[in-house]
Each structure stands twice: as structure tokens, then as C-alpha cells.
Design a protein around this nucleic acid. Structure first.
Lengths: 142, 142
DNA sequence: AGAGCAAGTTACAAAAAGTAACCTTATTAA
DNA sequence: TTAATAAGGTTACTTTTTGTAACTTGCTCT
């Protein structure tokens, strides 16, 4: 898989984007107070990605349905992640007081908007996953 | 900040993308063996994002320069992240046997390619960070 | 009365991240 | 001739985060 080189012009554009977003980036200051990292970390961790993907694929899922699909996740962690995603507005939680109780989760418009962007990044990863495997083998051999 | 609603047509397109990438997504199988999560988790965590951004902004940085810029990171974690990013091929590490020793890190073409995609996601986050803050306040109040 | 179900919670163990002191090799200053 | 300084880490130890598995709650059905 060939990676096209980034031209100097493109690099300048990237640097400008970074500067615009992280205005205080310079040798003397930090990004410590920047919320972007916090938001990124909470929405792109290994479990949240799967929750986004499954809710993008199946419009509505209940707690235990998600638990079965997001293979390996525990009740505790699923519960925590759903709370965070709900709190930040990516998903909605609807409780129906039936017996037994029914709770339904789905992406909000905001969540769909984020998922669209997240997918573009995962598509890149999907395209180059073999390249990364090869890089790891080369590294190991060296 | 208004979020535009995702049409049913767009949702189907998203579902198709997911199906293409995560072909085995269905109620009976898992994504357990999928490398995408692993790669995403290792390249988009809270410290790696900053390393990408700083190396996207400053073409070449030495260990201690990075340490100063990536405010709050410890030697140990910086060293670990740099190793992982080097191993996966995002950055290159060049050592010069001077005294004192000099080690330079920079993005590879592969790393630049990834950063470009990562930036699109962080730009979305940058655009909507206030929305998320509001969502959190609403959630807290409810 | 006992079993079962959905949707969690809780107490505890394991893993990951953070902290601070230390190491190496060579150079210069006292 | 010690001693301090420098870069780029490593190591031992502490704290925080994750993961595991058992338990809870409220109601129904047998």
C-alpha cells in the first residue's frame, strides 16, 4: 500500500488548522485546558467506538442487546459509557416502565453527526491496517 | 449551534460503510478480532493526539522539546507513546551519537496522512465543543 | 414461595497511568 | 579531581482506571 507524500503546501495547511484550533500552541504554553482532548478521549475509546458503530447500524438497541453485540464489555463499563455518551448528547436513553423494564438507546442527530466523522477516520484505518501490521513486523525484526 | 438531522438515506449509507468495514457485524458475531479498534485506541488517545498535533506543527522535535510542549506528560509515558507511534510507522526516530546525545522525532508520510484524517475529527469536535458543554449542563440539571 | 427477567450496582482484583528518583556517557567548571 | 550539567531515557513505586463476578430491584408467572 503506497502512501502519497504530503507536500510542503499541505503541511502548512495542516499547521494552520492546528493553530486555528489550538490557538495557544507555542513553545511556552500548553494545551492543558483544551476541551478537545477530553471530548476526543471520551468518544473515541475502544468501547465507545463500538457503541457508536452498533447504534449506527441498528437504529435502536436495548442494554442487553448492546451487551451481546459489544462483545467482551462488562455491565459496569457499558453502563458507564452509555451514561457518558448520554450526558454529552450523542445518544438518547428511553426507559419504558414495563415488566420487565425496557430501556432503549439510540443515536441523537448529534451522535449521527459525530459518527459520520468518526467513520471517516475508521475508514482510513481500515484502508491502512495491513500497512500498520507490516510496520509492526518490520519494527520487531529490526 | 444547530445540528443538521441525518436523513434516512444518509443513515443507510453509514450502515453500509460500517458493514463494509466490519463485515462480520451481526447479532451473532463480534468485532473482537478487528484490528481497527486496537489501532484507533493506540493512535487517538489523549497523549498521542497531542504528539501528532505538535509534530504536525513543528516538523522536527527532540524528546525534551516534545516533553515541554506536551504539557504534563511524563518521561515514561512519552517514551512509551513514541515507541508505539514509531513501531506503527507514524513517526520516525533518528538518533545522533553526539554529546549529549540527540534524538529527533518527526512524522512520516504515513503519519502525515493519518494526522490529516485525525484533524478532520478534531475540527468537528472544535466546532461542537460548546454544544457538548451545554449538553453536560442540561444533563446535570435534569 | 421460588424462579426468572431486564437493567443495572457493588465489592474486589488486575492492569494501566502517573511520579520521582536514578542511570549513562561525555563535557566543562571549580 | 571531584562535581555539576546535559539529553534521553529507565526503574521502582503509588494512584487511578478497568475489568470481573456476584448481587440487587421490582414485578410476573408457576
Amino acid at each position: 500500500m503506497e502512501i502519497e507524500t504530503t507536500t510542503d503546501y499541505q503541511k502548512v495547511k495542516v499547521a494552520n488548522k492546528i493553530k486555528k484550533m489550538f490557538g495557544h500552541i507555542n513553545p511556552r504554553t500548553s494545551m492543558e485546558l483544551c476541551p478537545i482532548r477530553d471530548i476526543m478521549a471520551l468518544s473515541s475509546d475502544k468501547w465507545s467506538i463500538l457503541i457508536f458503530l452498533y447504534l449506527g447500524f441498528f437504529p435502536v438497541l436495548r442494554f442487553n442487546e448492546l451487551k451481546k453485540k459489544v462483545y467482551g464489555i462488562s455491565n459496569k463499563v457499558l453502563s458507564e459509557r452509555l451514561k457518558t455518551l448520554d450526558r454529552d448528547g450523542y445518544i438518547s436513553r428511553k426507559m419504558y416502565s414495563e415488566v420487565p423494564i425496557r430501556v432503549e438507546y439510540q443515536l441523537t442527530d448529534f451522535g449521527h453527526s459525530y459518527l459520520k466523522k468518526l467513520l471517516e477516520l475508521t475508514e482510513w484505518v481500515d484502508t491502512y491496517k495491513e500497512t500498520i501490521q507490516e510496520n509492526r513486523l518490520k519494527y520487531k525484526a529490526s
